[in-house]
Design a protein around this nucleic acid. Sequence first.
DNA 1: GGAAAAGCTTGACAGTCGTCAAGACACGGG
DNA 2: CCCGTGTCTTGACGACTGTCAAGCTTTTCC
Lengths: 205, 205
Amino acid sequence: MDERVDKSAARRAELAGATLKTLSELGYARTSLREIAQNSDFSHGVLHYYFRDKVDLITHCVREYKAVCVTRYDQVVATATTPAQLQAGFLDKLAQTLVEEPHMHRLWYDLRNQSMFEESFRADVAAIDASLERMVWRVVSRFAELLDTPPRVSSATMYALFDGLFQQALLRQLAGDPDAAADLQAAVTSVVAQVVPLEREPVAG
Amino acid sequence: MDERVDKSAARRAELAGATLKTLSELGYARTSLREIAQNSDFSHGVLHYYFRDKVDLITHCVREYKAVCVTRYDQVVATATTPAQLQAGFLDKLAQTLVEEPHMHRLWYDLRNQSMFEESFRADVAAIDASLERMVWRVVSRFAELLDTPPRVSSATMYALFDGLFQQALLRQLAGDPDAAADLQAAVTSVVAQVVPLEREPVAG
DNA sequence: GGAAAAGCTTGACAGTCGTCAAGACACGGG
DNA sequence: CCCGTGTCTTGACGACTGTCAAGCTTTTCC
């Protein structure tokens, strides 16, 4: 019986993978079940054998997506012993994922946007957003710890800032701008210098 | 003859309005020409009388959208004579548009996202993004001028930061979070305090 | 007033969509 | 061997899509 559910879970994961691939290539608006099936080894009918409907399938995908993303910087956080090391490692991975996986990232932004229109996605999307926020905060708070300076903005704000920078960089990367990654690194460096600064006078006002 | 083109332009604008409304309600993925026509006084066939195809129609809409948005804060910039006035006016308008026009904003994010997948939208979207960046920069640079302190980040970075904050707030607003607007104002205030600070020691490193 | 032009509607076309029922295939236990 | 069960394919359904041609209505102009 365990074997049965394992098999079933594996197949679901396989189909979820094909779905993620399709979504990342075509975007939500043009992703159809038949197109997904063509990115897998099966026919379009099997999708309704493993998933209730299209929303169920995509929801499952979104959850799977989360697992991959959320640990991206954990290794860097775990091994870095100086602020400079941590910053360099983070910037490296940031640029790397921007250049190597832009399709995966646009898929995420597409789904998050879809959640603005379709309530069925909202809960899962919000959960992933929260996970990503924690991921970013692990990096930033560790950085602050190594610097012995508390961050000057909240976790939620910090995430929004990084997300905005990354999204602009992604737009440029997908438009073919060769400087997108380098400029992202520079911008992040500049912003971090402001919000997790070396010791300085407190801001008045 | 001028009268002809005026009439034609007016009708195009009218249909573009119906398109914007439909897009803001349903999102790009579920917006069809028949649905657009139902949001106007005409039948679906007329869309092909005034626009070559769907892409042409939506592209035209996007350009129209730009005109409305881009002057949102100009009045505030023109009238404010102190930093506090400018900041308060900006935060007011920011919260107001978040609460009153969330559908229009999700439409913009949806189309910008679509441009990650469809090259046909890319140029127009990039142009609007640049316009919005200039809009934000007019506010920030004026603020810095009134404070007699240069901003510590570039125009592009500043826009990305605001955009990230606004997008997070929009997600929360659309999910029904009653604190979305207030938290956005607080976050923007906090960030501005970091990147356009009152005089302080330069950041080392 | 009547013809020409512009504006708009209607209906059809070839596709595609999500969904699902019917049946084919594999496979292990009687 | 056959039967039952889990797995997968096939083909069909009604609905919906963008597009466009044919024709209707209104306006314009002589």
